[in-house]
Design a protein around this nucleic acid. Structure first.
Lengths: 187, 187
DNA sequence: GTCTATACCGCGATAGAC
DNA sequence: GTCTATCGCGGTATAGAC
């Protein structure tokens, strides 16, 4: 897996994989039919293990919504900061999503979908929040954070399009749930 | 460029490129020093040409903000629907962003940055809108749309995590600029 | 089950004629 | 400037011994 993450699918050779695994090439081929079979098996497994979003806490927390969501956002960004392999994994899945659509769908199913669904459930069920469309609110929240990571970390745009993490999170929360001060045509 | 878009960087051979261009391989090498030089030149050029966001209109429109933003969002999604090559281009740039960081930065500089900056300017300058942080509002708007495209089209998640485009746009606009009906602890 | 050895092919890059 | 021909290497996948 390390080889695929570093070099991508096409540029990774079965020789390097066998060497990294400490076995011969023929042994690798005895466990997996071919290179695509090995690749899909590895990515599918990683898509099940990796967790971008910390969902357990969100389902059980009794903290105030603003604080809970702030904590949720910070945990996600901390995950990525602590494990940069996540960035490489995202690059690989997106980069190969045209040629391995089933792997991309595994990523959506195991990582994106639970995140949006749990957050939607949280936003819909918490009595202090009254969104007309909780799913869109969840998509806006997660979409803004993912886009922040995509531009800043994945695409190396931190210096080109800089913004403080705390400012983004605080102002995003204010925009979405604490927006009663700002209205159109204030009267 | 077609070869790179379809097969990715590593899986594209200089033989195929030469054949697709209708010249010999030596001729390609007389114009570009090596494969990486050709690749970077092509991607840099495409990053300047492609436009995800239609910015001209947004700077000159006199329509009501909600309508102008709705039009802006629809134009962006129409662009992508009309030219699926954009999806392949995004896959390629993100997929190679670890090995070609300067290309990823060209993407941010020429596509993401102008989009966020022009939208920020619009949100900040329009008298009917009073955001405490217009840049975060712009990032939330664009981030939600990009994430929608990323999950649905790039990662083939339309069926796994379906949502109507019009619902997303309308509810997103309501969430961000028309949110005076919904408040925390309504009194 | 795992090894060594190899078949067979395509790769990036260049030499040298025209 | 563009061509044909070629070099040297590394690719995926397998055969057959242990």
């Amino acid at each position: 897996m390390q080889e695929f993450l570093v070099h991508g699918y096409a540029a990774t050779s079965m020789d390097k994989i066998a060497a990294a695994a400490g076995v011969s090439k023929a042994t690798v081929y005895s466990h997996f039919h071919d290179k695509t079979g090995l690749f899909t098996a590895l990515i599918q497994r990683l898509a099940c293990q990796k967790e971008l979003f910390v969902l357990q806490e969100l389902q059980t927390t009794q903290a105030e919504p603003t604080l809970a969501l702030k904590h949720f956002a910070n945990q996600m960004l901390n995950n990525i900061a602590a494990d940069p392999q996540i960035l490489t994994f995202i690059r690989l899945v997106i980069g190969e999503s045209g040629r391995f659509p089933e792997l991309a769908q595994a990523f959506v199913k195991n990582i994106e979908k639970p995140g949006i669904e749990v957050l939607t459930g949280y936003l819909a069920s918490h009595p202090a929040l009254q969104f007309p469309d909780p799913e869109v609110a969840a998509r806006a929240f997660i979409g803004t954070l993912i886009h922040f990571v995509l531009v800043g970390r994945v695409l190396h745009g931190e210096t080109l399009l800089p913004i403080e993490r705390e400012r983004l999170i605080d102002q995003l929360l204010d925009l979405i749930i604490g927006s009663h001060q700002r209205q159109i045509h204030p009267s």
